[in-house]
């Protein structure tokens, strides 16, 4: 199986909160918007025709402002919320068709979740929390204790096994949350704004822990966030939701270079472009070597600027990870790449 295989397929997923859903669904499919629906039928449009393919062993980020439906979407994947219509295929099984027993099985073996507010069990010790997903599968105690201990060590919480969650700091609690999710060896990891409640330093540390674990475990991760920097740091792909609809789903570089609409432009306008845009996104394609130094195609513009500043007149040569030359960048390209696209306005105040 190649790494780009699709593991989860979400097809035409709709979620409408409130009574009279059949009527409402009809209206929504005919193009009635969120506010009109609320006026007419007193129903809230949660998700509007979501189609998303999530690749195996990749981190799929889902972004959006509060109320855009991202937490609703992730809860459909393990059916903490039931959809109004649509299908979600995991390994070609429609999980929306699972009966109660199969669903329990599926949750135990295939998917685990990390929550924004940690959602640890306050009356259980750390090791009991981490082993919970195993204990509900009726795995013998010494076996789940052993696995839980391993994961507690892996997230760096040795010695805290018998503590209660209330005795740990927020960052440590979320490590417990992460260990609890990893302990079941589920292939799919759902992370619902998992690091949003943490302060910036701890958040960055947790992101590194996650990336570190991912390089070793190759889970399929669906990561919800409202923080673009976080999305760019960890996402292999980023999907952006607005009012329950999918606005854009693409490569992180693509989101920055070609935002689909003003909403996405708004999202990206405050980021430091020089620090996130990579050479391959702005280079001129060519196979011939240029006069300047050679750099990797995933190098960010800020670093290229540093290199080019020695002799700005010489364009740098870009090569891919296999060492083949793929393009070149001149100083003018750099400036063009760092400035905001026209559609985003200038935003200069003084």
């Amino acid at each position: 199986m190649s790494k780009s295989d699709t593991l989860i397929k979400i097809n035409q997923l709709y979620k409408i909160f409130g009574d009279g859903q059949d009527n409402a669904l009809e209206l929504v499919k005919n193009g009635v918007g969120k506010e009109e629906l609320l006026d007419k039928l007193n129903c809230v449009l949660g998700l509007n025709n979501i189609n998303l393919n999530i690749k195996k062993a990749k981190i799929q980020v889902v972004m959006g402002l509060s109320g855009s439906g991202k937490s609703t979407l992730i809860r459909h994947l393990n059916r903490l919320i039931e959809p109004t219509s649509g299908e979600i295929l995991v390994n070609d099984t429609d999980i929306l068709k699972l009966n109660a027993k199969e669903l329990v099985q599926f949750r135990q073996n295939n998917m685990s979740m990390v929550f924004q507010k940690f959602a640890l069990f306050p009356h259980k010790t750390i090791i009991q929390n981490v082993g919970y997903g195993l204990a509900v599968q009726n795995i013998p105690k010494d076996e789940w204790i052993e696995k839980a201990t391993k994961w507690i060590n892996r997230v760096g919480l040795e010695g805290y096994e018998t503590y209660y969650p209330g005795q740990l700091s927020g960052g440590m609690q979320q490590r417990v949350g992460l260990a609890r999710a990893l302990a079941t060896d589920a292939e799919i990891l759902l992370m619902d704004e998992a690091f949003s409640a943490l302060d910036p330093l701890i958040r960055s540390e947790m992101q590194n822990i996650l990336l570190d674990l991912q390089s070793e475990l190759h889970k399929t991760i669906i990561f919800i966030t409202h923080d673009l920097d976080e999305a760019l740091k960890i996402g292999d792909r980023i999907a952006i939701l607005r009012d329950g609809s999918m606005v854009q789903d693409s490569d992180p570089q693509e989101i920055i270079m070609n935002p689909a609409d003003d909403y996405v432009s708004d999202f990206i306008k405050d980021i430091n472009r020089a620090r996130v845009i990579q050479a391959k996104s702005i280079m001129t394609h060519t196979k011939t070597k240029s006069s300047g130094p050679v750099v990797q195609e995933n190098m960010v513009l800020e670093d290229i600027l540093q290199i080019m500043s020695d002799d700005p007149s010489k364009p740098v040569t870009i090569e891919n990870s296999k060492g083949n030359i793929t393009g070149k960048i001149e100083m003018a390209n750099l400036i063009e790449g760092m400035k905001r696209p026209k559609s985003q306005g200038t935003n200069i105040t003084g």
């Binding site: 903490l80 669903l103 599926f106 929550f115 069990f121 997903g133």
Partner: peptide, 15 residues
């Protein structure tokens, strides 16, 4: 009882 804790229990397939 905290809804978050229940949701967590659900997500791990507790009956």
């Amino acid at each position: 009882v905290d809804k978050d804790a229940l949701e967590a229990a659900d997500s791990f397939g507790a009956n």
